[in-house]
């Protein structure tokens, strides 16, 4: 039993989750990823393609996929849907002009069959800007209350200061863990 126990314990420790981070361009996806990972955020370029980060948090191994949000890249988003446990939708709270775009893109994502089981975390980013809309305003503009198909939560955050990033990710992990790691 000794060796088997050790093996099983190791297996249990490898609790992996796959998180997909999407949103319009200039929303701050890469900045959130890098800030969360404790990296320098002042040299980030617009994402041409995608970034993957694997990091440990709260005993989970997180594979975070940050895919560029430019219009010409959005058609490639679907390539990353497979086996996603959590969807992180990042919104530039100060970009009022494109909120409608943002709502449309999100609602079309939520119809996606391969994302059906995923938990949705909406980051109302850039709350450090004086002109940023509140979390409540974003919630209404994106019609989040109409979402019945996914567990969701909206959190106001600032990727530049790092505020509330942890709170958001913690909620997401708890929700996913409650769903996939409870024994049947």
């Amino acid at each position: 039993m000794g060796l088997l126990t050790i093996l099983k314990k190791m297996k249990q420790k490898e609790r992996e989750m796959r998180l997909l981070m999407l949103g319009l361009d200039n929303a701050g996806k890469t900045t959130i990823l890098k800030k969360f990972n404790g990296e320098d955020v002042s040299t980030i370029s617009p994402t041409l393609g995608f970034n993957i980060k694997t990091l440990e948090h709260k005993g989970f191994k997180l594979n975070i996929w940050d895919v560029g949000g430019q219009k010409s890249l959005r058609s490639y988003w679907r390539n990353y849907f497979e086996s996603t446990d959590g969807l992180v939708w990042v919104v530039d709270s100060a970009d009022r002009l494109r909120l409608e775009d943002c709502r449309k893109e999100l609602s079309s994502l939520l119809l996606e069959e391969r994302l059906a089981g995923a938990t949705l975390l909406v980051f109302a980013n850039k709350q450090d800007l004086p002109g940023a809309l509140s979390k409540e305003a974003i919630q209404e503009a994106l019609a989040l209350d109409d979402i019945k198909s996914h567990h969701w939560c909206i959190i106001g955050c600032s990727a530049v200061t790092g505020k509330n990033l942890l709170a958001g990710v913690d909620w997401l992990l708890d929700d996913i863990a409650a769903r996939i790691f409870t024994t049947d």
Binding site: A94, R96, L97, L99, P130, G131, L133, S134, K135, E136, A137, Q139, E140, A141, I147, K148, S149, H150, H151, W152, C153, I154, I155, W171, D175
Partner: peptide, 28 residues
């Protein structure tokens, strides 16, 4: 499903009605 686990319950009252118009005092 009609009760999603929202940790932050929104308290949108009529006074804080959303104004998504681009022109607003807080923004330059």
């Amino acid at each position: 499903v009609s009760a999603p686990p929202v940790t932050d319950t929104p308290t949108v009252t009529d006074s804080t009605k959303v104004d998504v118009a681009p022109a607003e005092s807080v923004q330059c």
